[in-house]
Simulated assay, not measured.
Amino acid sequence: MNESVYVYSGDLSEKSEEILTKIGEASEDLLSQLRHSPLVNIHAASNRFDFYTKIRIRRSRSEQTILALFNRDTADALLAEESSEVIEIVAGITRLNINTGNGRLEIIDERETVAFGFDSEYRFMNVSGKKVFSENLNHNNGLEKDRWEYLRLNVSPVRLRNGKVVKYIVRGF
């Protein structure tokens, strides 16, 4: 749910990673479906009354885990649009799902990560292209930022109405 509104919710549990692996590239279709009626409906209270909606697991009265929080900001994410422009960015890979090709990157001299994906199905990418991203993640993992290696990427930004970029679609590197 968080991924469908471009909210990074941290690393997934081992069990969640296994499920995502089984789903594979169908996860993109699932995200697209979620962005339609289910998440539009869940934002009704936010859009009309400026309330928020929480999805949580309640194991007991005192032990609760919030899975997702929806408000006007996440409602705006449902209206994000991919730009037709292609720009160049310099970024390091901070997360990569090798089954879906989705991940997160951090632009040089920025502090926040941004989601990314590819313009074609990841499984059809050549192995050398996949290795560029996985090796960058492997190199940067655990290093101080001043020792990171960065990639030059040609991307199309996915923007909210206010101009904020919530995802980059990689067109070339």
Rank of each mutant, 00 (worst) to 15 (best):
M1R: 07
M1W: 03
N2C: 13
E3W: 02
E3M: 06
V7E: 08
D11H: 14
D11L: 08
L12V: 11
E14H: 09
K15E: 14
K15V: 10
I19E: 13
L20P: 00
L20G: 07
G24R: 04
A26P: 01
A26D: 14
A26V: 14
D29H: 12
L30A: 05
S32D: 08
L34I: 03
L34V: 02
L34K: 03
L34Y: 06
R35F: 01
L39K: 01
L39P: 00
N41H: 09
N41W: 01
H43W: 05
A44I: 14
A44Y: 10
S46Q: 07
F49M: 14
F49H: 13
I55R: 10
R58Y: 01
R58E: 10
R59M: 12
S60M: 05
S60P: 05
R61C: 03
R61K: 04
S62A: 08
Q64A: 13
A68K: 04
L69P: 00
L69N: 07
N71H: 06
N71A: 05
R72C: 13
T74R: 03
D76H: 07
A77H: 09
A77T: 06
L78K: 11
L79C: 07
L79S: 13
L79E: 10
A80Q: 07
E82M: 11
E85C: 09
E85K: 06
E88M: 11
E88I: 14
I89M: 04
A91M: 07
A91G: 01
A91C: 10
G92W: 00
T94C: 10
L96M: 13
I98F: 12
I98E: 15
I98A: 12
N99A: 14
G101K: 01
R104I: 12
L105I: 13
E106Y: 13
E106T: 12
I107C: 07
I107Q: 07
D109M: 09
E110I: 07
R111F: 07
T113D: 14
A115H: 08
F116K: 03
F118R: 06
D119M: 03
S120T: 14
R123K: 15
M125S: 03
S128F: 10
G129I: 15
G129T: 14
K130Q: 15
K131P: 01
K131G: 06
V132L: 12
S134V: 08
S134E: 05
E135C: 08
N138D: 15
H139S: 07
N140A: 02
N140D: 11
N140F: 04
G142E: 06
G142T: 08
L143C: 02
K145G: 10
W148D: 08
W148H: 11
R152H: 09
L153C: 00
N154C: 06
N154W: 08
V155D: 01
P157K: 02
V158P: 00
L160V: 02
N162T: 04
N162S: 13
V165N: 04
V166H: 03
Y168A: 01
I169D: 02
I169L: 06
I169T: 12
I169P: 00
R171V: 02
